[in-house]
C-alpha cells in the first residue's frame, strides 16, 4: 500500500505492505531508532509513540491502521537543540539509568501531562503502568514527571 503519515511534523509517503508493524516503519524506513523494541507483544511499552496524540505500542499497530495518521516519536517532541520539559526533568531527577525504557516512558509522560497538567502520584503511576522499567525502581521517574508538570504549568 502507499502509506501517508505525518511523522514528527513532516509528511511522509512510503510504499509498505499493509501488515507491516508501525515500529518497523519507524525504525527501518524512517530511521528513527529512538523507538525501542523490548518484547514485540505490547507488554513492556518501550515502543510507545504518540499516535494522533495518544500513547500507543507501535509493535502492535499495522501500517494499514495508521493511514493519514499523525505520529510523534521521541525524536519529535523537542527541537533538535533543545529538550522538552519532560526530557529536562528526566535528566535532572536522575530518572534515567540504562535508558532503554526512557523514550517510551517520556512519551507516556508527555501524553499524561497534555491531558492532566497537575497529576497526583497515583495518576502518574497509572499513566506509566504500561511502561516497564527494570533499573530505576520508578521513584525518580515519578519525581521527574512531577517536576516536568510544574515547569509546564509555569510556562517553561
Amino acid at each position: 500500500m502507499t502509506l501517508s503519515i505525518i511523522a514528527n511534523g513532516r509528511r511522509r509517503t512510503l510504499e509498505t505492505p499493509p501488515d507491516r508493524r508501525l515500529i518497523d516503519i519507524i525504525r527501518e524506513d524512517l530511521h528513527l531508532t529512538g523507538t525501542k523494541e523490548g518484547c514485540g507483544s505490547g507488554e513492556c511499552g518501550a515502543c510507545t509513540v504518540l499516535l494522533n496524540g495518544k500513547p500507543a505500542n507501535s509493535c502492535l499497530i499495522w501500517a494499514c491502521q495508521v493511514q493519514h495518521g499523525e505520529i510523534v516519536t521521541i525524536e519529535g517532541i523537542a527541537p533538535p537543540e533543545g529538550l522538552h520539559p519532560v526530557q529536562e526533568a528526566f535528566v535532572q531527577e536522575g530518572a534515567v539509568q540504562c535508558g532503554f525504557c526512557t523514550p517510551g516512558m517520556i512519551l507516556s509522560s508527555v501524553a499524561l501531562l497534555a491531558t492532566n497538567p497537575n497529576p497526583d502520584r497515583e495518576e502518574i503511576k497509572h499513566a506509566l503502568s504500561g511502561n516497564l522499567c527494570r533499573c530505576t525502581g520508578y521513584s525518580k521517574i515519578f519525581r521527574a514527571v512531577e517536576r516536568a508538570a510544574e515547569s509546564l504549568r509555569n510556562g517553561k
Binding site: 528513527l32 531508532t33 523507538t35 526530557q87 535528566v91 534515567v96 535508558g99
Partner: peptide
C-alpha cells in the same frame, strides 16, 4: 556531588544507539 548523568541527554532524546540500532 549529584551531577546529572553524562549519558542522560542521549538517552532522553533517543539519540543513544543500542545494539539493535
Amino acid at each position: 556531588s549529584s551531577i546529572p548523568r553524562a549519558d542522560a541527554i542521549g538517552k532522553v532524546t533517543g539519540r543513544t544507539k543500542y545494539g539493535a540500532d
